[in-house]
Every structure is written in structure tokens, then in C-alpha cells.
């Protein structure tokens, strides 16, 4: 049955949207990522206007990270002080990002920036993951585990001023690295409709050197708050959040995620990361093709004030 989306102003088949939400939810449950980086391009391929896709995906990630926060809250693996600092940066980033997105939209460049941003982001993250997971797989096969990274390696980050104690993470570091990290993720959330978990998680582990046990819960809390703020700000300033589309995507997503978690527990970490890397690179390649191949019509029309 077709369903009419009041904000996107188009008819879609609700089963396809439910399926997309479910598939992305499955993958996000399996790999432990929000899945915004997959959902936004999928919606754009389906024909949803890119600004509606970006804004509505943010609300989808709010729902999926809610479940994550609850699970980690109960296990007491959330560093609230760290999440607070990240969030302070995140809210600044989101406000600026939503404003930037409005400017880009008026200049007619939002579509290009979203696509090009995804190509760069997915290419970099996918490439790094592919490289890392292959090394890990090769090491596992030859029987020599990779040398563990030094746990307390001091880098330039530890020389910054305004230090603060993060009890849960057993860290005493400057507030600037998490503040800047939160800020970058906030901008990405607003412009590209991603939660930013795939940047936040490695950055917390390798740059901030937080214990892995609290990384997931803390990043879920940060993503929950930032995407909730993004949803409200996009709705208020760009009118691009489609609640009907969001509802169907979320229903599919939360169910898919539960099955994804079960499927993910049967695969090994390196194998999971290799699969995810291939998926990420494939989506990036598809978007790159869209930018490079001569379009069917080099003109495009945007109707104002509808």
C-alpha cells in the first residue's frame, strides 16, 4: 500500500520504507553502529529529497541509540561527565551545522555537499577499517596476535590545559579534545544525518584512550542527545523532518536491530569489521559514481515555499 509523506510531499510504498529501516537496523545491531551513514544514502537513492533524508535519519538514530543507552545505563557503563563535555561541544556543532545546512540549501549546494561529504567520510573510514581488519585476520591466521598498543602512551593531547577528572573513564585530561570531538560530530549530524558513532568510538579509544567498556555507552548517550537536538533544530529551521517517514523507519529499525544483535554475536570481531568495511566502501563508491557520471539532465528544479 502506498502512503503519502506530508513533508517529503510524495507517495512511497510503506513496506519498502519499513524494509529499509529493518535492514539498516539489522546492520546497526550487528555492527554496533547507528546506521545513519547507510540510511541517508538509501533514502536518497529511493528518491526522498536529500534535505528530508538527512533530517529524518537523525530522528531514526535517536530511537536506535535510546535502546543502546538503556542497556548500558543498567550496566553502569556510561561516563556521564565525558558525555556532558562531548554534548556541550555537540550542541554547538549542531546549531552551527543546521544553520550551515540552511545556507547550503539556499545556495543549491546541499545535495552536492551531502554526497561529497559521504564519499570522503565513507572512503576514509571504510579504507581504514578494511586495512585494520585484514591485518587482524592475517595475524589470527598465522597465530601471532598483533602487539597490543601501549596502554598509557602520552601524546600531545595530554599537554593541553584545563584538565578535568573523568572518574568512570579513569582519565585526567584537558576538556578540549572531547569538546572538539563533540563539536565535529554535531556538525556531521546536522549536515549529513549521521550519529557519528563511527568517528566517536575510534576517537574515544585511540585519541582519548578511554577504557573500551565505557566507550559504547558514553557514545550512545552523546549520539542520543545530539541527534535529538538535530531533529528539533532541523524541524524548527528547515521544516524537513517527516514524522510519518520517521515512524515507519523507526518501527523497522528497532525490530531489525534486535535480530542484528543476535546475528552479530555469532561472528568474530575482525570478520564483522571486514564486512562492515566492504559495505561502507560500496555505499561510498555508489555515491562517487553519482557525482562523476554525466547526469541524465544537467538541470534541476527546486520549488520554493511549497
Amino acid at each position: 500500500m502506498e502512503i503519502y509523506l506530508p513533508i517529503a510531499e510524495m507517495s512511497v510504498h510503506w513496506l519498502i520504507i519499513l524494509g529499509m529501516g529493518g535492514a539498516v537496523g539489522f546492520l546497526s545491531g550487528m555492527f554496533g553502529v547507528g546506521g545513519g551513514f547507510l540510511l541517508t544514502p538509501l533514502l536518497i537513492f529511493y528518491g526522498i529529497p536529500s534535505e528530508v533524508a538527512v533530517a529524518t535519519t537523525a530522528s531514526h538514530i535517536t530511537a536506535s541509540s535510546m535502546a543502546g543507552v538503556i542497556a548500558h545505563w543498567k550496566r553502569r557503563t556510561v561516563d556521564f561527565a565525558m558525555a556532558g563535555v562531548l554534548l556541550a561541544g555537540g550542541l554547538m556543532g549542531t546549531s552551527i551545522g543546521v544553520y550551515l545546512f540552511k545556507l547550503l540549501r539556499e545556495a543549491g549546494q546541499s545535495e552536492f555537499v551531502v554526497s561529497a561529504g559521504y564519499v570522503i567520510l565513507l572512503g576514509t573510514v571504510g579504507g581504514l577499517m578494511l586495512n585494520e581488519s585484514q591485518q587482524a585476520l592475517r595475524a589470527a591466521r598465522s597465530g601471532n596476535p598483533l602487539p597490543a598498543r601501549p596502554a598509557r602512551h602520552h601524546n600531545w593531547i595530554h599537554g593541553l590545559p584545563l584538565k578535568m577528572r573523568f572518574r568512570q573513564s579513569r582519565l585526567y585530561i584537558s576538556v578540549f579534545p572531547p569538546l572538539v570531538l563533540g563539536f565535529i560530530v554535531g556538525i556531521l549530524s546536522a549536515i549529513m544525518g549521521v550519529g557519528g558513532g563511527f568517528i566517536l568510538v575510534p576517537a574515544m579509544i585511540y585519541l582519548l584512550r578511554m577504557p573500551t567498556s565505557v566507550v559504547m555507552g558514553t557514545s550512545f548517550l552523546q549520539i542520543l542527545c545530539v541527534t535529538a537536538a538535530t531533529t528539533v533544530l532541523q524541524a524548527a529551521s528547515n521544516y524537513t523532518v517527516d514524522i510519518m517517514l520517521a515512524g515507519i523507519l523507526i518501527l523497522g529499525g528497532v525490530v531489525g536491530a534486535q535480530f542484528g544483535v543476535r546475528a552479530g554475536s555469532r561472528l568474530r570481531g575482525e570478520q564483522l569489521r571486514l564486512l562492515l568495511a566492504i559495505l561502507v566502501l560500496a555505499v561510498g563508491a555508489r555515491l562517487l559514481i553519482g557525482l562523476v557520471v554525466t547526469p541524465a539532465d544537467i538541470f534541476s528544479v527546486a520549488v520554493e515555499g511549497q
Binding site: 530522528s59 531514526h60 535517536t62 535510546m66 542520543l224 535529538a228 531533529t231 528539533v232 515512524g247
Partner: peptide
């Protein structure tokens, strides 16, 4: 929209 998402 956010409340709906969090509730779900």
C-alpha cells in the same frame, strides 16, 4: 518527533 523516537 523526538519523543516518539525515544518512546519507540
Amino acid at each position: 518527533t523526538v519523543i516518539m523516537a525515544m518512546l519507540l
